[in-house]
């Protein structure tokens, strides 16, 4: 049966995504419609399949089944047309760490076919906006985890994509830089862009996102406008209600100091 056409306002459509690694089913059929001009949070417990889903949604991992549409363009059939619309910040992947921060941003821009003068200008803007000017001449291998995150975010932004897919963008980032990133992303969404981010921090998702999907066991447990998903509860309580609390919350009496 042919899949239904994407909703016209969808920036990213995930259709029946499946992925299995050996005996482990990482994603067991995920469908999501992410509206254009939305700030979309994807939350879920560890091992829920968030990173696998976002990898399939950005062309980094081939799905066993299912499809991805970026503004109506099939990512896996027409990658040359779909990928330029995406800006991607993966979690847990290396960067070319023998380059300096400035060189890494230039590299990302040139890979996207941008003109060198434009790359130079945007590189300097991004280094300033993300408070990375000092890091511009330092090798990425000498960066802290937070700095690496920020430079990878700069690489995702340099070609001014229409959709940003960010896996844990605030992890290990200091509060001042986190504030700067929040402002950049909010202004991006306000100007018509779409941000999809995954996070474990419910307060952050509540504060930033207007839509949220709760993922657990490789499936979508709830998705929609954040108020609909919360259903009158705190997002964290709703999240725990959906995915379940720790089964065995035993008391570590031996850890007590007195």
């Amino acid at each position: 049966m042919p899949s239904p056409p994407p909703a016209p306002a969808s920036a990213l459509s995930l259709r029946g995504l499946h992925k299995r690694f050996g005996a482990t089913v990482a994603v067991a059929g995920i469908d999501l419609e992410i509206p254009t001009h939305s700030f979309y949070g994807v939350v879920g417990p560890n091992g829920a399949g968030k990173t696998t889903t976002l990898s399939m949604a950005t062309g980094l991992l081939e799905p066993d089944a299912g499809g991805v549409l970026v503004h109506g363009v099939d990512l896996w059939r027409e990658p040359a047309a779909a990928k330029p619309m995406l800006g991607v910040l993966p979690d847990g992947l290396h960067t070319f760490d023998r380059l300096t921060g400035a060189e890494l941003i230039s590299y990302a821009g040139l890979l996207r076919g941008m003109d060198r003068d434009v790359v130079r200008e945007r590189r300097d803007d991004l280094l300033a906006a993300l408070d990375l000017r000092q890091a511009g001449s330092t090798l990425v291998t000498d960066f802290s985890a937070g700095m690496t995150k920020k430079i990878a975010l700069a690489c995702a932004l340099v070609h001014a994509p229409r959709v940003l897919v960010l896996d844990e963008p605030f992890e290990a980032v200091d509060p001042v830089s986190a504030g700067a990133i929040r402002r950049i992303l909010q202004s991006f969404v306000a100007s018509g862009g779409t941000v999809v981010l995954s996070s474990h921090v419910m307060a952050l998702v509540e504060r930033l996102c207007d839509h949220v999907a709760v993922v657990g066991g490789g499936r979508v447990l709830a998705a929609g406008a954040i108020d609909e998903v919360r259903a009158g509860q705190d997002l964290e309580d709703r999240f725990v209600g959906l995915v379940g609390d720790v089964a065995d919350s035993r008391d570590l009496a031996w850890l007590r100091q007195s």
Binding site: D97, E103, V119, L139, D142
Partner: peptide, 13 residues
Amino acid sequence: RGGGAQRRSDAVL
């Protein structure tokens, strides 16, 4: 660790 090496110019550009 990269040994604190610095490179002022953008060798990629």
